[in-house]
């Protein structure tokens, strides 16, 4: 117990980085995932193909490789730099890789949602003169989102837990990396392990409850 109390401030700072990565990840992956699903259901073959390739490549690549590629490939080789500060830069590199990765799962969850919307509604939307984008944003996606709130919650929970592999993208300040550093000096500590588990559960459990509740509340009756 003593180690946990002693290193709590450090671990808390590390965990705060996981929280920040999660926040950026939720927003960015929902936006990117929505754009991807729009591509995948669009009438333009090129966009559809691009969306399909992206989703299938990303979904089948280990996250650690996606993060390593973001750091080594995009940042070091191609010179993508978010900040002069190395830690800030690697934070954004990881946030980007994590969002890029998670967006593929968001896209597929949403696509399942799109499939729950009867085709007739899309035709009715076109028949009153709505454009593809309008029927997507006003008719299809609102219903698709509401149909997959619970699965989207699972995707978000997975993403929050995935913030702990941030080291793969060169970001060394998160809770898991901090924990490892602490263990290097003190040896493994069960209380610290459990402390972090509790911290993550404090983040993910409410998301599970909230999305479950929202899913029931917002279900579209047909």
């Amino acid at each position: 117990m003593d180690e946990l109390i002693k290193y709590a401030p450090e671990l808390a700072l590390g965990f705060w980085e996981n929280v920040k990565l999660s926040l950026v990840g939720v927003v960015a992956s929902l936006i990117l995932g929505t754009i991807l699903v729009a591509m995948r259901v669009s009438p333009t073959p090129v966009l559809r193909a691009a969306g399909t390739v992206y989703v299938n490549v990303i979904r089948n690549t280990p996250l650690t490789l996606v993060l390593a590629f973001s750091a080594l490939g995009l940042s070091d080789q191609l010179g993508l730099v978010f900040s002069e500060m190395p830690t800030t830069n690697s934070f954004w590199i990881v946030a980007m890789g994590l969002s890029a990765y998670t967006s593929a799962f968001v896209c597929e969850a949403l696509r399942a949602g799109v499939n729950t919307v009867p085709l007739g509604q899309a035709e009715a939307a076109r028949a009153i003169g709505l454009t593809f984008i309008q029927s997507l944003t006003m008719i299809i996606l609102p219903q698709a989102f509401r149909a997959v709130i619970a699965p989207l919650g699972s995707v978000m929970i997975a993403m929050i837990k995935n913030t702990t592999v941030a080291t793969a993208g060169g970001f060394l300040l998160d809770a898991a990396a901090t924990m490892k550093e602490v263990f290097d000096t003190t040896g493994a500590s069960i209380p610290i392990f459990l402390g972090l588990v509790v911290a993550f559960m404090a983040l993910t459990l409410p998301i599970g409850f909230l999305t479950g509740w929202l899913a029931r509340r917002l279900a579209v009756v047909r």
Partner: peptide, 11 residues
């Protein structure tokens, strides 16, 4: 256009 299955926007 009026369809056999109404196709009202459910939400």
């Amino acid at each position: 256009m009026v369809f056999q299955s109404f196709n009202l926007f459910a939400h």
